[in-house]
Design a protein around this nucleic acid. Structure first.
Lengths: 359, 359
DNA sequence: GTGAAAGCGCTAACAA
DNA sequence: TTGTTAGCGCTTTCAC
């Protein structure tokens, strides 16, 4: 494993200091098993197990002995053994498409809070918008026999079928799934329509849209809502004013430059998430266009910095934390009772108008 | 489990649609074990196991039969069983103090990329700057017998001792540990000094500092570096100009309002992270103070939006991704060889000067 | 109320 | 090269 001889591959200045330390323990402290606990307490492993799991059928005096023996030995149950025997795990997998996107980390917090409250752990996996990575994590989830999965689907049907074929409880968030699963979505299409209508009402005339890759439902929905609004106000929708890019700043930057360099450039933009908004604002600055006055902007996701730019950014705020919360609740319900009918929950996004959508 | 009857506790408009779906499978598809695979392939479980694990000692023809049997049955190894038997897990736990802080999610990516490359999975846990939660997750990590732990320590020594007592490979990131563990840190003190010196050189005279809670090493270091710089330039350091708050926007907002409302207010501020910077900029705006001209600001962490504010925000950029990468490499090295001496790696932060630190 | 014993699914001796 | 078998640590019948 010379690969790990050291982090020499990091090419930034680093100081490595080796400290022959005085803390080194002498022995690996042979990890205590339930048998050790039982022996020390002078009971059978069965009784030890019952006491440790708080079963009421065990004599209080014995239970106390077991508990103190366990404490003295620093006993920690062996998870794999317990899970193997019980054929179940108190672990949820949360597979999201981008750990660095605040929208998804908020979802994570929602999931975690609910899970924690009932003694479940959450393991967070980052599929990175990459179907293969998603598939690997789904495999891991299956192999570890997690109790359930919350997924923001990146890949195509086959990945998800792995889960449904095994009847692993599954909740899809953010993006719908053509499968047997609960879903928690946002009515992003009508929010996009509302945001676009707002721009129109503010006097913007040639409104453009920068959205995510084709095939990602949320990206498509935002574009559709945008078109809905244009149509409703009897405007032509023109492909000239719509652009797609990865859900990232750099792609949105290119798209915005491209869009705004046209002779008959848009005078307003609907932007599909906050990372993209960063790229768009950079583009405006590069082209010396004033936010609001020259180009109105509404972006999805209420980033903490949105009100810091000048003028403050109008946004479509999505209830990310609640998405996670609801998803976890649905998942727990299904784990408890797999016969529940599948549901789709649609939460509302909220338009928050600030200065960037006014001339 | 009526708690989970539904997500009715979410008090925002939600549409719940129940779809009696056409996808429902008929049977739970009794999960295939290695015995089923062996039977189907007409070999013993031992041979099946060997084939599945790619051992070279098995007849190619048999191996092929096993593999196709496994594929047909949709066989997925039972992780708990395997881990129990092998007494090891290819899983790393990463316990960070705030999932919503980009600094830590960047670390997560670094850890993940290294782990993935060698077939390890990473489970991400959010201790939320809460020693009790940290302790719970450390317990989980121990119980699941993870191969190693990367930790940004929140709690005090006892938590970590749980790990070291069991000799669980451990790498601390961001904050030092008085224990037997590798550490990956940032020379945040000298970076803070450098940033403060920069402010002085730009003609700011009464420089303040808003840092994190006492006892968190990174918070203390930033304050210390700030004082170093003042002392080096023969200025008095005054407690009047230093404030502490949680590493969050709201706390920093209060602190900044407090600081800047003084008659002899600071004319520049060193801010300890990007979330706090949001609070500080909000305070400036509320008090009608101009960034740069009235109050120079340098903040830790190069957030994507830093160059969008006007004037652009000067920052101390920390090599978060590399911290994660190095930490994971060290952890893998130690997993492979527990006798390695403990090391402390210190990476450099970089001052990026932009408009906010110029008059 | 307690203990003896079986067995979850897998891997690794040990035999053949 | 392959099969037989023991056993990882735990929970849970089933007797007592």
């Amino acid at each position: 494993m010379t690969l790990f001889a050291g982090p020499s591959s990091v090419n930034i200045a680093a100081v490595r200091e080796v400290h022959c330390n005085q803390f080194r323990r002498v022995r690996p402290v042979g990890v205590a098993t339930i048998n050790d606990v039982a022996a020390k307490a002078g009971v059978s492993t069965a009784t030890a197990s019952r006491a440790l799991n708080g079963k009421s059928t065990v004599d209080p005096a014995l239970a106390a002995r077991v508990l103190s023996a366990a404490a003295e030995l620093g006993y920690q149950p062996n998870g794999p053994a317990r899970n193997l025997r019980r054929q179940e795990t108190a672990v949820l997998a949360l597979i999201i498409s981008d750990v660095e996107n605040p929208f998804f980390t908020s979802i994570a917090r929602g999931v975690e809070d609910v899970a924690q409250a009932v003694g479940y752990s959450v393991v967070l996996c980052n599929s990175d918008e990459n179907p293969e990575k998603e598939r690997r994590y789904i495999d891991v989830a299956i192999q570890e026999r997690v109790a359930g999965v919350v997924l923001s689907p990146t890949g195509t049907a086959p990945n998800v079928d792995l889960l449904t074929a095994r009847r692993t409880p599954l909740v899809a968030v953010d993006r719908p799934l053509p499968a047997a699963a609960d879903m928690v979505l946002v009515d992003t299409r009508s929010a996009a329509k509302q945001a676009t209508t707002h721009l129109i009402s503010q006097g913007y005339d040639r409104i453009g849209c920068i959205t995510g890759p084709a095939g990602i439902q949320t990206a498509d929905d935002r574009l559709a809502g945008y078109k809905d609004a244009l149509r409703a106000s009897k405007r032509r929708t023109s492909a000239r004013f719509a652009r797609r890019a990865e859900f990232r700043a750099d792609g949105a930057f290119e798209a915005a430059i491209d869009l705004l360099s046209q002779p008959d450039r848009p005078d307003a933009l609907l932007v599909a998430n906050s990372a993209m908004a960063v790229g768009v604002l950079e583009a405006l600055s590069k082209l010396d266009l004033r936010l609001g006055a020259d180009v109105g902007v509404v972006a999805f996701d209420d980033a903490p910095w949105a009100s810091l730019v000048d003028p403050p950014l109008s946004v479509v705020s999505q209830p990310a934390y609640d998405i996670g919360k609801v998803a976890a609740q649905l998942l727990m319900a299904r784990i408890a009772d797999s016969s529940l009918p599948y549901t789709t929950t649609t939460l509302n996004a909220t338009l928050i108008t600030r200065g960037s959508s006014t001339r």
